[in-house]
Amino acid sequence: MDATDKLIVNSLQGGFPVCAQPFAAVAADLGLEEQDLIDRIAAMTEDGVLSRFGPLYHAERMGGAQTLAAMQVPLERFEQVAEQVNAHPEVAHNYERRNDLNMWFVIASDDPSAIARVIGAIEAETGLTVYNMPKEEEFFIGLRFQV
């Protein structure tokens, strides 16, 4: 990543225009050529620096739902349970964390009833309790990641 890539990442985390030629508009703001901007974003996506480029959805306002859930998984079963949990396409992130509750994952779907269904399926498949901790309020975050 060179200085131009960093400039692009830092400026585009705040948003991207919705207009006929958005890359041309951003390129003009940043003092770049349109094609150079497009090529750099494509390269950073391929390299895995960016996970995606496009809209970020608000699950509930889409009519869907999203939740955070946790499990206490015996260490000797951890890998197997992780595979069982991750096999559900509605499971978005899954982290092992240092705590008695050691597996934490996000479940998201455009169908609100999917949350309970996925939790029920995971409990049935693993024999473990899933603690569901849905969001009650979101506090606004201003800044993104500076690179």
């Binding site: 990442v9 585009l12 985390q13 705040g14 991207f16 006929a20 970020l56 990641f145 690179v147």
Partner: peptide, 30 residues
């Protein structure tokens, strides 16, 4: 194109789209 732009702008203004833009992979960015 005009219809897409109008729809996406409305979805963004209503907060259905939180934002348009890029998502960085934190781990790969240090």
């Amino acid at each position: 194109e005009a219809d897409v732009i109008a729809r996406l702008a409305a979805l963004r203004d209503a907060g259905v789209i939180k934002r348009m833009g890029l998502v960085v992979r934190h781990h790969e960015n240090g």
